[in-house]
Design a protein around this nucleic acid. Sequence first.
DNA 1: GTCTATATGGAGATAGAC
DNA 2: GTCTATCTCCATATAGAC
Lengths: 225, 225
Amino acid sequence: MARRAIPKSEETRGRILAAALKVFRERGFDAATMREIAAEAGVAVGAAYYYFDAKDALVMAFYEQAQEEMAPALEEILAASKTLEQRMRGIIGQKLAYFAPNRALVSALTAHIDPAHPLSPFSRATAPIRDRDLGFFERAVVESKLRLPAAILPYLPRLLWLYQMGLVLFWVYDRSPKQERTEMLFDKTLKMMLIAIRLAELPPLRPLFKPAGELLKAIYGGATC
Amino acid sequence: MARRAIPKSEETRGRILAAALKVFRERGFDAATMREIAAEAGVAVGAAYYYFDAKDALVMAFYEQAQEEMAPALEEILAASKTLEQRMRGIIGQKLAYFAPNRALVSALTAHIDPAHPLSPFSRATAPIRDRDLGFFERAVVESKLRLPAAILPYLPRLLWLYQMGLVLFWVYDRSPKQERTEMLFDKTLKMMLIAIRLAELPPLRPLFKPAGELLKAIYGGATC
DNA sequence: GTCTATATGGAGATAGAC
DNA sequence: GTCTATCTCCATATAGAC
C-alpha cells in the first residue's frame, strides 16, 4: 500500500460519521441511538466508541466537517463580492444551504446554549471553530471600508456573527414553506442594519450609539463569546 | 372533613412539586431523577407519576406556579409606576428576582426553544401562560402614551416580551459576580430602546422604521409567538 | 491498532396489588 | 390514591479476538 492511500481506519471513521449524520437527519439527535448508528455503518457499537468517545463527539465532528467543507465556498464569496451587503448575503446563504439537509441535527444542537456545555457555540471547546468562522466576518467588514463610530466598529464582526447565529436559530424552527419567513427576516433586518450603519454618525443618533459603545466594551471585555 | 379544607391529594401534589423544585435547584433538571424527587417528597416513584404524567409535567407546574405567584407583584408594579422605563425595570427586575433561586432549573429549560416542544415558551401548550404574561407588557405600553409609528406600536408589547426572554436567557448563563453583566446589558439596552422610541418619528429615521413595520407585519401575521 | 460481543447500571415509565 | 416490583431502553464500559 502506498502511504498516500487513505488508511483503512480513516475510512471506517468516515463511514461511522456519515452513518451518524444520516441517522441524525432521519430521527434527530436525541432519538438516534448508538446501536442504530453502528448498524447503519455496518460495524459493532464498540467500533463507534473506538473512534468517537461519546455520542456528543459525533456532533463535534460534524461541526468540524461543516467548517472544513464550507470554507472554500466562503472564500469564494469574499473574493467575488465587495460590499458588506453582498458578503453577508453570500455567507449566510451558504450556511443555510449547507445546513439545510441537516436541519434535524442542527435543531437538536440549539439545546446547548450554555457556554459551559462543550457543544455550545459559545464554549471553550468550540472556540477554534468559532474563531475561524469569525475570521470571515472580520474580513467582510474590514475590506468594505465602513464608516462607523470608533467605539462600535471593532465589535461589528462579532455582532454580525451573533446575528448570523440568531438567524440560523430562527431558520431551524421556521416551518413556513421554503422558509420564506427566514428569507424575509434576513432581507429586512440586513437592510435595516445597513441603513443604521449609514445613519450612525448623524448627530441626532449620537445618544443612541454612545451607550451602545459602552455596552459592547463592558460585555466583550476579553470575553469568550 | 369540611369541604373547604385542602384535600389530602392537593397536599401530596404540592409536596411532590416542592420536592421536585428543591432537587432541580440542587442538581439541575437533567441530573435530577424521579427516584430522588419521590424520596425527597417521602412518596414512592409511582405516586409522583400519579400526580405528574412525566418529569416534564413538573416543569409545566413550575411555570404555572411562577405565573400565579408573580402576578400580584406585577400588578403592584403597574399600579405604582407610570413610565415605560419604570415599568420595564419593575417587571424584569421582579422576574429575575423570582427566578434567582431556580437558576439551575430555568437554565435547563432554555434547551427547549423549539416551538413544537410543549415546554417551549413559544409552544401551544404554554400559550395561556404566555398570553397572560404578554398582558402585563400590553398594559405597560398602552398606559404610557408613547408616540411610535403606527406600523410598529401594536407589536411593541410582543417585542418587549421577546426582549425580556432574551434578557432572562443572558442572565441564566451570566457568571459575573451578582450578574452585573446582565444588569449592565439591561440598563444600556433599555435606555437605547427608549431613545430609539423617542427618535422614531424623526424624518431621517423613516427609512429604518419602514422595513421594520413591514417585517413585523409579515412575521406576526397571526402567529403564535 | 481495530473491532466484536457482551455486560453494566441507571433512567423514565408502568402494571397491578393494597 | 398510593405503593412495590418490574419493564424497557439507552449510553457507555469492558474483555478479549484478530
